[in-house]
């Protein structure tokens, strides 16, 4: 199946962001906390995107922010998948009371709105990068658990898993060699969606002043720092906010295509 143009746009967007995240701090013209000009200078050759509320170069902060915002969101997503998939497969493969206890516990955690629970926890924990990754990953892993358990449930009833059990294979073998390879396609699409969630969630926390702390550059925090500019008719906070929105749209375009592709592949088989 030929990918639609929208998918190519999605991949192009992701490629640009990954490049910015990897080499951003290296090619950035100034340091992330370096004051280099006046407050809210207009676009110029020296400052292609102007300066921020403290006279720091916007482009440099965007580039530094790329690696931090995307890096933290990616780390949280990876951790959330590790937790969610481990527990989800465990629940599906072992079943019985293990499944019941895990499922009830996750249901209860999901009954609380994610943002509210994060705010409660951040009222006593310091908002360090490690804590932020942990909080986002744990809250997000509930969704991964649900999906991993559901897809694994479909696979564990298959004959080849039963054969492996009868052969006397260990739990690790059954999970990693029998179940995992057969449940990957839907989880890949989910990875994109969960990354978007973690990324938007982190940006919202930073926007509220409770995420990544200044002077470190972070896109949500940059929107917060420059919010007042808008009442002077300067659309400065829209620059980091658009940077956030465009990446989410790009990932969504690719995820849509991946979901469609895996459902046609199933129908064709």
């Amino acid at each position: 199946m030929r990918p639609r143009p929208s998918v190519l746009v999605g991949f192009a967007i992701i490629a640009v962001y990954v490049a910015a995240a990897v080499i951003g701090p290296l090619v950035s013209p100034y340091g992330e906390a370096e004051v280099v000009g006046d407050v809210w200078e207009p676009f110029s050759a020296a400052h292609p995107l102007g300066t921020d509320n403290l006279g720091r170069d916007m482009l440099s902060r965007l580039l530094w922010g790329a690696s931090r915002t995307i890096g933290v969101a990616l780390a949280a997503t990876l951790l959330s998948f590790t937790i969610g998939m481990t527990l989800g497969y465990l629940a599906a493969v072992v079943g019985g009371w293990v499944d019941m206890v895990l499922s009830r516990a996750i249901d209860t955690l999901m009954a609380i709105p994610t943002l509210i629970f994060a705010l409660v926890v951040l009222a006593v924990l310091p908002p360090s990068v490690v804590i932020l990754i942990l909080v986002i990953a744990v809250l997000d892993s509930t969704r991964v658990f649900r999906l991993a358990r559901a897809v694994a449930m479909d696979v564990v009833v298959m004959d080849f898993v039963e054969v492996a059990r009868l052969r006397g294979e260990r739990l690790g073998w059954i999970v990693f060699r029998e179940v995992l390879p057969n449940t990957l396609p839907p989880l890949i699409a989910e990875f994109g969606l969960r990354f978007c969630f973690a990324f938007l969630f982190l940006s919202s926390l930073s926007f509220l002043g409770l995420g990544i702390q200044p002077p470190a550059a972070d896109w949500g925090g940059m929107v917060r720092d420059n919010a007042n500019a808008i009442s002077f008719g300067l659309p400065i906070p829209l620059i980091p906010a658009a940077a956030i929105a465009v990446l989410t749209i790009g990932v969504n375009l690719v995820v849509d295509w991946q979901l469609e592709r895996s459902s046609t592949a199933r129908r064709g088989a």
Binding site: C196, L200, S203, S204, F207, G220, V223, A227, I230, S231, G233, P235, P237, L238, A241, A242, I244, A245, T248, I249, N252
Partner: peptide, 21 residues
């Protein structure tokens, strides 16, 4: 689809910029 992909504060500030400022 675009409305779903955008953070609320982005939509909020766009509306402020266009309709208020």
């Amino acid at each position: 689809l675009s409305a779903i992909s955008m953070p609320e504060f982005f939509i909020g500030y766009i509306l402020i910029f266009v309709f208020a400022v």
